[in-house]
Amino acid sequence: MLLTFFYGVVAMNSRYKQYLVIGLLLLFKEQAFAGYLPMAESSASTNPTANIYSTAQTGGEGKNSSLYSYKNSQATYDIPSVQLLDKDSKNIDFRKLIDYGGPVMVQFVFATCSTVCPILSACFSSAQPELEKLSGGSYRLVSISIDPEQDTPERLTEYAQRFKAGKNWYFLTGSQGDIAAVLKAFSATYQSNNKMYHQSLTLMRPRKDSNWTRIEGLLGKQDFIMEYKKMTGLSSQVKK
């Protein structure tokens, strides 16, 4: 039933979709539809040694339990050496950005998306204050456009402002070929030419040369912070 509902949302007029998603975010806040939005399966597989498991969330950050689940796996990726463009029109060496040494979290979005992407980005946005405290300011959030022809630096700037992005949050676009190389490297390619069905992914890594935590589905802020603490070895500080 929920899948039927969201396929209907995709077909709606973009203005009405935006209003609907904003309303749903306000109604359900951080727990909105985690794991229930339609996702296309990747045409590239994750690392074959990845230990994939499903995690039923139990509200580790407080008394309220999450009713949702997401697929969680460990994987390694070969980061491509490509030049991308950030929202300030600066050339960015993607590998250097990712391999800077500290915690990094990656998502794939596009600015005109009015279904999955706002929920992914709202998670990053709401987690910023706590990430700042937990990391001492040493972390990076990276949102990569899957629609580089439309997502100019100016449009990404508007998108970043909408989600109150701080200095540690990077928004990247680039050529079709370079974006495709990044998608392939992270096993994030999607079937068909409809970007509305791209995967809902959050990728996390604590430091260079560590494994990545690959999360398929949608996270609320509490889930995201819990996964961050697990990844960085701070899970013992999770409140019981």
Rank of each mutant, 00 (worst) to 15 (best):
T46M: 07
L134V: 08
K90Y: 15
G137Q: 11
L131V: 04
I98K: 05
V104Q: 06
S138C: 02
T115H: 03
T189C: 09
L183A: 02
S175T: 14
Y36S: 14
F171D: 00
Y68M: 00
G23P: 11
R162W: 06
E227W: 08
L134T: 06
G60T: 10
E132N: 13
Q128M: 12
I22L: 09
K90C: 11
I98V: 15
G166F: 09
T173A: 07
A122G: 01
T173I: 10
L25Q: 15
P148H: 08
F5A: 15
G217M: 03
L141M: 04
N13S: 02
Y7K: 14
L97Y: 13
K17W: 05
K71W: 05
K164W: 01
Q222C: 03
E130I: 05
L183F: 04
S73T: 13
I98N: 15
G220D: 07
L20H: 08
A50Y: 09
T46A: 07
L203M: 14
A11Q: 14
A165Q: 12
V116W: 04
S66L: 00
P148A: 13
E216I: 10
K17E: 11
P148M: 08
G137V: 12
E216D: 14
K195P: 08
A50K: 14
K167P: 02
Y190Q: 00
I179M: 06
P153W: 00
S138F: 03
N51Y: 08
L3E: 14
I215G: 10
L234T: 01
P80K: 07
L156Q: 02
S236A: 12
A160L: 07
Y228R: 01
C123G: 14
W212Q: 08
V116Q: 05
G137I: 12
S54Y: 10
Q74P: 04
F186R: 03
S126W: 10
S236F: 12
L141A: 01
A11C: 10
I79N: 08
E61V: 11
Q222I: 03
V116F: 04
S138H: 06
K63W: 00
K63P: 06
V82F: 03
Q57C: 04
W212I: 10
L26T: 11
S210E: 02
M105Y: 12
E149I: 11
D147P: 07
Y190K: 00
R140K: 15
S125T: 03
D93R: 07
Y7E: 13
D223H: 01
A34K: 00
L234H: 02
Q191E: 12
Y68S: 06
K63S: 15
T115F: 10
K184M: 08
Q83I: 13
V109Q: 09
P38V: 15
P129I: 15
N194T: 00
G174R: 02
D178A: 11
K29M: 06
R155H: 06
Y77T: 05
K90T: 10
S69E: 11
A127F: 10
F186L: 10
K96Q: 09
D88E: 14
R95Y: 13
Y139M: 06
S138Y: 01
A188T: 02
Y19T: 03
V182R: 01
A181C: 01
L156F: 04
F108A: 13
G136N: 02
K208T: 12
R95M: 15
V116L: 09
